[in-house]
Write a protein that binds this DNA or RNA. Structure first.
Lengths: 119, 119
DNA sequence: CTGGATCCGCATCGATACTG
DNA sequence: CAGTATCGATGCGGATCCAG
């Protein structure tokens, strides 16, 4: 085992999961990745995420923007229209994330069954 | 809608991230996936995970076992020796998880830089 | 329409002590 | 050695109000 191994506290996988593991992050990335005009407005995102509060969507988007995964484009001042999209980094993350999604869609039922959470 | 189950239950990705996103889960899966004898004992896992408490390692392993991702093999009663390994399901999860790890190792620096954690 | 500020409940995690 | 039980701190996520 060499230094810089994945087991140290700075393990990048752990850090990544800390970010995309937050409650609404993966949903935002997925929606933005699948957006056909490549951008979605704040209210449009909120509409497609049942249950998300304005605060949490705002917090999630700000974190993703600061992490360089999401772009933020403001159009006009009043009423404000903010469009969000994925950066190149965000799109590259979408690739392994999509693989994880496919696995989840294919196997989560097995996990639920094993955990006895069916029904 | 007042509680946490208000988002779409048809989003298995969220459910999966809720599980592998917990603090020590991904580390356990990685260690077990890379274990050469395919199994590791409790104390061996703890030794390779600096900072984990007995309780959290125990909780993490129990959750993974109940989810059908990890096998648990008890050898002897006193002293107890418990060996953990990955199930087939766990190994299949390791594939997309490894992809995510590779992305993390390749790009987390960019995220940190964008987030202003680097000069 | 967007999103910041504040208060708060609750789950998660950690430290410690105890059992077999 | 492996695992449980309890208590407490921390931080996330949610409701609400306020501002541009």
């Amino acid at each position: 085992m060499t230094r810089g191994d994945l087991f140290d506290p700075a393990c990048p996988t752990r850090q990544l999961l800390d970010r995309i593991g937050s409650k609404w992050t993966s949903m935002v990335i997925k929606l933005l990745a699948e957006a056909d005009p490549a951008e979605l407005r704040f209210s449009e995102l909120q509409r497609r995420m049942p249950g998300v509060s304005q605060k949490m969507l705002s917090v999630t988007l700000r974190a993703l923007t600061e992490d360089g995964l999401v772009t933020r484009r403001v159009e006009g001042a009043v009423p404000p229209r903010v469009h969000y999209g994925l950066t190149g980094l965000g799109r590259s993350l979408e690739v392994p994330l999509a693989a994880l999604r496919e696995w989840a869609e294919a196997h989560m039922a097995e996990i639920d069954a094993a955990a006895g959470r069916v029904g």
